[in-house]
Computed example of a mutant assay.
Amino acid sequence: MPYDPSERWREYHVTPRYLAGSTFTGDPALRPLLDVGWKLTHDEMGNVYANAPDQTVRLGYLPEGNDDALWKITAYSDPFAMPRWLVTFQDSTPTEIVQDFTTALAAAYNEGPDSYLYYGNGYLAALDAGTPLAAAGWSHRYGAADISFESPDGLAEVHLRRNRLDHTAEMAGHQERWLILAGPPGNQWYATASSFTPECLVAAMNSALIDPAPVIRYGEDLRRLPPQATATPVRPPVPTPLDVRRAQAANARSTVAPSPAGAQPFIPAPRPPSAPQVPRPGHSR
């Protein structure tokens, strides 16, 4: 849909959500963690960090980071050791997908370490995290090095690496167990998850990717959408009968001026009788 400058603030429903792009604000994805007591800090460059109360999980929102991974989430079985797992989202990732992940992370954190630190080791168990993709009709292919899932429109894919990976390289962001790629060629975003990421969190990433619910974007965002995305204007809600009655009552109150206290009603003076009209020449009554 072409961009119309006069409708820059008009709301649109965009589908599929993996083509909607980022909203360029981290607040929606940070909120689930702040709601369960995580602490927010920031550095002098504008990067934001959310830390779990026990310091075992840390999220970074890094607009001034040293690469294009806008979001980095790490978990630690020992706060002084190398992270146990790492999840990243590139800067063009739709914010709603990150928000679904942090919502799942907040729930897992409340359940305890077994949910957010462990149960990410088994390869067969990891394959179960791809079940939402298969259930949504994504095709899959078993290769020598990975298992790949592809969306019906061919514009999103998920890869599960089958080969042995180096943990240090994974924590440095050089390798990944799970890789999500979405968007047309030349306009893709990515997300990654390392080997020990709990299956429930990987499944949350995949479920967020395939969620059919549209996301809200504004008129000025349409310039950044790929042509394969669908943008439908959001219609104003139809007023209910109660809304109509309330509006009518409000209008009546606003158009009838109240009388001052003690004021007497105005009674117009009687008109004097009008003189009889004399017919004009040439005009018959």
Rank of each mutant, 00 (worst) to 15 (best):
101 F>P: 00
121 N>D: 12
69 A>P: 02
95 T>S: 02
146 D>F: 15
59 L>T: 10
206 N>A: 13
11 E>H: 06
221 D>C: 09
87 V>G: 11
253 R>T: 00
74 T>W: 00
109 Y>G: 08
186 G>K: 10
180 I>M: 09
182 A>V: 05
8 R>P: 07
5 P>Q: 08
24 F>A: 06
211 D>A: 09
219 G>K: 10
51 N>D: 14
36 V>T: 11
203 A>D: 14
60 G>F: 14
139 S>P: 01
99 Q>F: 10
133 L>Y: 09
72 K>Q: 07
84 R>H: 08
184 P>I: 04
71 W>E: 01
19 L>D: 15
83 P>M: 05
135 A>S: 13
137 G>Q: 14
166 D>L: 03
256 V>A: 07
5 P>N: 11
223 R>W: 02
106 A>Q: 13
83 P>Q: 09
78 D>W: 03
51 N>E: 15
256 V>M: 03
241 P>K: 14
76 Y>W: 10
107 A>S: 15
271 R>K: 05
93 T>H: 15
87 V>N: 13
220 E>G: 09
193 A>L: 09
44 E>S: 01
72 K>H: 06
29 A>L: 09
259 S>L: 02
226 P>D: 06
4 D>V: 03
51 N>S: 14
230 T>S: 04
98 V>A: 12
239 P>Q: 12
258 P>Q: 09
125 A>S: 09
61 Y>F: 04
271 R>Y: 07
149 F>P: 00
174 H>L: 06
89 F>Q: 02
85 W>G: 03
239 P>C: 13
114 D>Y: 07
189 W>L: 00
142 Y>C: 00
179 L>S: 02
266 F>Y: 07
228 Q>S: 06
244 V>G: 03
259 S>F: 03
46 G>R: 03
252 A>M: 03
183 G>R: 10
145 A>I: 07
39 K>E: 08
206 N>K: 10
275 A>I: 02
90 Q>H: 11
172 A>G: 08
102 T>L: 04
90 Q>E: 14
183 G>Y: 12
